[in-house]
């Protein structure tokens, strides 16, 4: 009897704790969308700056994600499959941008890619400016979001049993062809999910971008700019639209996961 009562109390406490956390996480966002969602969407029709900021956010996040996939996929495969000295150190270093504060990431990028740096001045001489430019936004997004892609892609490759590749190799495939014909298709859903996570992280980035490139403005910077320049009422519709925008990759991710579990993978 005492056991059953204890179990009931524990259940109630757990449910209460979970409900409070859920409320805390959803209430601000729900309130924001409820208060300014429709006006924000309506504002899209006549606010060209907001439209441009959203397009710029989508384009730069997509470019950063593409670069992350191109560079990150082979690296994620290597980290998942090959044992080499210092692998743990490489993996930890690659995760570093996830844990450092994002303004700090922006400062580090400014130091490495700014006009005063060797890389920044060299690229500037070639006509490529990394601060105060679209390239700068892509760099900031790539820096903070690529580690998420790498981590998820590494997991996706690690989930594919290496013996599939072994069989493909004995069936006459050289390493690259076995990767293309077997490993890549089997890890594909995981890689797409990793890319969606990276894209979602990129569109929500603010700290690193604002230090590297204030103008042109991405949606997060525009929201901040309206808040500091015109106050909360001006920032609300922009913020609400950004939340709705951010829901797109989340829904895509859920759909992918549902599809994956439905496929039995």
């Amino acid at each position: 009897m005492a056991d059953r009562a204890g179990y009931r109390i524990a259940s109630v406490v757990t449910a209460l704790g979970a409900s409070l956390l859920l409320l805390f996480l959803t209430l601000p966002v729900a309130q924001l969308v409820a208060a300014a969602g429709l006006p924000g969407l309506a504002q899209l029709g006549h606010d060209a700056e907001l439209r441009d900021a959203l397009v710029l956010t989508a384009v730069t996040a997509s470019a950063a994600t593409l670069l992350g996939m191109i560079g990150g996929t082979p690296l994620a495969y290597l980290l998942a499959r090959r044992a080499f000295p210092g692998r743990a150190v490489v993996a930890a270093v690659l995760d570093l941008p996830i844990v450092i504060p994002h303004p700090v990431a922006g400062i580090a990028l400014l130091l490495a890619l700014g006009r005063q740096s060797a890389v920044g001045s060299g690229l500037l001489a070639l006509g490529l400016r990394l601060t105060g430019s679209v390239t700068g936004i892509v760099c900031a997004m790539l820096f903070v979001a690529a580690p998420l892609y790498l981590s998820a892609a590494r997991e996706a490759f690690a989930r594919v049993d290496p013996r599939y590749e072994a069989v493909a190799r004995t069936l006459g495939d050289p390493a690259w062809r076995a990767f293309r014909r077997v490993t890549l298709p089997l890890a594909f859903r995981g890689l797409v999910a990793a890319a969606v996570v990276m894209w979602a992280r990129a569109i929500s980035e603010f700290g690193a971008i604002v230090i590297l490139t204030y103008n042109p403005k991405v949606a997060s910077v525009l929201s901040y700019d309206r808040f500091t320049s015109y106050g909360l009422p001006a920032a609300l519709p922009v913020a609400a639209v950004l939340v709705i925008f951010a829901l797109i990759p989340l829904i895509a991710l859920r759909a992918l996961r549902y599809d994956r579990s439905a496929a039995g993978l």
Binding site: R163, A166, V167, R169, T170, L171, G172, D173, P174, A175
Partner: peptide, 12 residues
């Protein structure tokens, strides 16, 4: 030699 050049078949 790599597995694809050995002329073996492998069944797990």
């Amino acid at each position: 030699l790599p597995p694809d050049a050995r002329g073996v078949g492998l069944v797990y």
